[in-house]
């Protein structure tokens, strides 16, 4: 295996594009090194993107925030403006693994690892985030929900890397929240998860909403019916019941060592309701 740590995204793309064997991007490495240890992957080339300065920065932009592809999740908590604007996203990113893992892992890595249970992804989807991608044929943008193609697969092409995650500007009277279910209090992979991002008007009526579920299908789901269930409401009990039902209905989970179909389906609805309540409160709703 070769290890390369280029100083620019362009060099990184070139290295990845010309490698004939298996090549991996090394951001935080908290998934890649585990897979290497288990013998699941045997890279010929690893391209460390942490020496690319632009990818280590969190920038406030005209459209919101740009979070470099190599920014560790722990750094998100240190950016007060980001925490204020997108508390749900920052919380989600800092539920990944442990403090040790958060010191290394990145949201872009969490996304590109393409696990349906990735913690930061539902929050990013609910937030309407996009990714900036650089590749041999130039740059492009993709909605976060369009990046995973299946379990462990993405829609990135050979040589492409996610250079940053673009979060929109926070709208007035809006709030986001992320909740996941794990059997312990820390260290587990989400058994089921839900993120809600919503905006209310002066009367507390929800005008916009995005609801995303994790670990209930092969990819993170953006559940439009769930959003519909609460738009136009003040998140009253009837709306919550509809939201819960819509989320449970959207689940297409599996039975595995972490949970059952029945459990995931039931708890998805519960988490959606609780996350919506938090998001609603954050938006200033009462």
């Amino acid at each position: 295996m070769r290890y390369e740590a280029p100083a620019t995204a362009k060099e990184a793309v070139a290295l990845l594009a010309k490698e004939k064997g298996t090549a991996y991007v090394l951001a935080g490495g908290t998934d890649l090194l585990v897979k290497m240890k288990a013998g699941m992957v045997e890279p010929d080339l690893v391209v460390d993107i942490k020496r690319i300065k632009a990818m280590r920065e969190i920038k406030k932009t005209a459209t919101g925030f740009s979070i470099g592809g190599a920014v560790p999740c722990a750094a998100l908590t240190e950016n007060a403006a980001l925490v204020k604007a997108w508390p749900g996203v920052v919380e989600a990113a800092n539920l990944i693994g442990s403090k040790q893992v958060q010191g290394r892992c990145t949201m872009s890595g969490n996304l590109c690892n393409a696990s349906p249970a990735a913690d930061s992804v539902p929050a990013l989807v609910a937030a309407g985030a996009k990714v900036a991608i650089t590749g041999p044929k130039g740059s492009r943008k993709l909605a976060v929900e369009d990046v995973p193609a299946g379990v462990g697969r993405t829609n990135l092409k050979k040589g492409e890397i996610v250079t940053s995650i673009e979060l929109p500007k926070k709208l007035a009277k809006s709030g986001d929240a992320y909740l996941r279910f794990i059997p312990r209090t820390e260290m587990d992979i989400a058994v089921v998860s839900c993120a809600v991002n919503l905006t209310i008007d002066g009367k507390g009526v929800i005008t916009k909403a995005r609801v995303a579920l994790g670990a209930v299908a092969v990819t993170v789901l953006l559940v439009k019916d769930a959003a519909k269930a609460i738009i136009g409401t003040k998140l009253d009990d009837a709306a919550k019941a509809k939201l819960t039902a819509a989320c449970s209905a959207a689940c297409k989970p599996i039975d595995d060592k972490r949970g059952t179909i029945e459990f995931r389906t039931d708890v998805a609805g519960v988490l959606a309701r609780r996350a919506a309540e938090t998001a609603y409160a954050r938006a200033g709703g009462k």
């Binding site: 935080g28 693994g97 893992v101 010191g103 260290m187």
Partner: peptide, 23 residues
């Protein structure tokens, strides 16, 4: 060896990390 126990924790440039998950 997989970042699940923390016994290999070190501080790298001011951040706590599992040294088993760093090259």
């Amino acid at each position: 060896g997989t970042g699940d126990c923390g016994a290999c924790s070190v501080i790298l440039d001011g951040r706590l990390v599992c040294s088993c998950l760093v090259l």
